[in-house]
């Protein structure tokens, strides 16, 4: 790790200015669970590290009639007990599935949404991979068991967040602050595929940061559920995960939103599956049909064909559990 300057601004407005000035040479730091590891691994060698924890408005949860607003630097461990957040059971499940208790004690929700990929070719400084500005993706002919089956090319990462898929299912937005303006954008539109930008996972501009996560109160009227499958329960990222939100009345499915984690470089909105399900009566065949149609476009790599089967089975299971929940 190289020497760096470490600052704790108190004013939010100061941050976009610093970002604009330093660009890639600075790093935002909140919980540090991802950022510090990247610094130690030599993936980021910032000159300036900006700790966000002293900025008050980033650390609070607020609610009004229209939405619940979660500051980007609120710790994950603090959210499951918050009554305003508890209205979204699927969101609680997603938050509680993140990493380990230790990681949730340090990690923040903004950090979770902005975490970089876990792809080992990206995370190891030994590989000059495409996402780090190199020439090619090492996963294509390499060890690609954990890589994506949808939305790949020219880079085959999966987005590691558990919370983003659920936020998309709840139709949440993020507030983004830049030097000139702040803007709101759907979480769904926050992420980009490598074909649009192989170097970044989000639409954030050089001077921008996420300041708040905005969950619409009306999402509290939906049933929601998050299922995460991991190889090792003690600590693992999702091999595949499924976020489900929607309504179930007399076994009829409406307002269905299904988002997959672990299968694509961004949280994958399963729109085809949603269309198959919408307005239909629940049945195992219907669920399998929806999953199969969604995954018809999957292009597995040499070692991850299993993910197609896993995603199909997990979609079915997640919706069944979602339906069975009170």
């Amino acid at each position: 790790m190289k020497s760096f300057q470490y600052i704790f601004p108190k004013e939010l407005q100061a941050v976009p200015k610093l970002l604009a000035e330093y660009g890639e040479k600075c790093l935002l730091y909140a919980g540090g669970t991802d950022a510090l590891a990247r610094m130690k691994d030599g993936i980021n060698s910032p000159e300036l590290v900006i700790n966000l924890k002293k900025i008050k408005e980033l650390g609070v949860v607020k609610a009004n009639r229209k939405r619940v607003e979660i500051g980007a630097a609120v710790r994950l461990a603090d959210l499951p007990t918050d009554v305003r957040v508890r209205k979204f059971p699927g969101l609680i499940e997603a938050i509680e599935s993140v990493g380990t208790i230790q990681l949730r004690n340090m990690g923040t929700i903004g950090g979770n949404l902005n975490q970089r990929p876990r792809c080992w070719y990206f995370k190891s400084s030994r590989f000059p991979c495409l996402r780090k500005g190199g020439e090619s993706c090492f996963a294509i002919y390499g060890e690609n068991k954990y890589h994506c089956i949808l939305g790949g090319y020219p880079c085959y990462i999966v987005h590691p967040s558990d919370i983003a898929p659920m936020l998309i299912a709840l139709d949440a937005e993020v507030e983004i602050l830049g030097t000139k303006k702040s803007r709101w954008i759907k979480v769904e539109d926050f992420y980009v595929l490598p074909s649009q930008d192989p170097l970044h996972e989000t639409v954030l501009q050089r001077d921008e940061l996420v300041t708040r996560i905005l969950v619409p109160q009306k999402a509290g009227l939906l049933k929601s559920h998050y299922v995460k499958f991991r190889e090792r329960d003690s600590f693992d990222f999702a091999m595949v995960s499924v976020a489900v939100a929607g309504q179930l009345n007399d076994a009829v499915l409406t307002d269905m939103r299904i988002v997959l984690g672990g299968v694509a470089p961004k949280p994958w909105r399963a729109r085809k599956a949603e269309q198959v399900l919408e307005g239909q009566r629940m049945s195992e065949d219907l669920l399998l049909q929806a999953a199969t149609e969604e995954l018809a476009a999957a292009e597995p790599l040499e070692q991850n064909e299993y993910k197609v089967i896993l995603a199909r089975n997990l979609m079915k299971r997640a919706i069944q559990q979602w339906a069975d929940a009170r």
């Binding site: 876990r118 190891s124 003690s234």
Partner: peptide, 15 residues
């Protein structure tokens, strides 16, 4: 590629 304990997986208490 998996030269760390995130990716070289040893079982934990829950396993």
């Amino acid at each position: 590629p998996n030269a760390d304990l995130e990716n070289y997986k040893i079982p934990g208490a829950l396993e």
